[in-house]
C-alpha cells in the first residue's frame, strides 16, 4: 500500500482515538499543518537509519563521541 498524506481519515480518526475535540477552525489549522509536515515525515521514515544508533543522552554542549 502506498503512503498517503490525505488528511480526511487520519485527522478525525486520530483525534477521535484520543477523545480530542476540534472545531472547524482548529481542524483547518490541523489539516494545513498535516499537509506541511506529513510528506517530509514520510520521507524521514523512509530513510535507512538502521546503522545509526541515536546518541544516548547526548551532551549537546560538545561534539559527539567518536
Amino acid at each position: 500500500m502506498e503512503a498517503s498524506n490525505t488528511a480526511d481519515d487520519f485527522i478525525p480518526a486520530g483525534l477521535a482515538a484520543y477523545g480530542i475535540e476540534a472545531d472547524e477552525i482548529e481542524l483547518a489549522v490541523i489539516r494545513a499543518a498535516h499537509q506541511t509536515f506529513w510528506p517530509p515525515i514520510l520521507e524521514l521514515l523512509a530513510l535507512d537509519t538502521s546503522g545509526v544508533p541515536a546518541e544516548r543522552n547526548p551532551d549537546l554542549s560538545r561534539p559527539p563521541r567518536r
Binding site: F10, I20, I30, I41, L44, L45, T49, A54
Partner: peptide, 16 residues
C-alpha cells in the same frame, strides 16, 4: 499528539 513516535525516533537518529 498526532505526530508519530517513530518519526521522533528517526529524528534522534538524524540528530546523531
Amino acid at each position: 499528539v498526532l505526530l508519530p513516535a517513530i518519526a521522533t525516533i528517526k529524528a534522534q537518529q538524524v540528530r546523531t
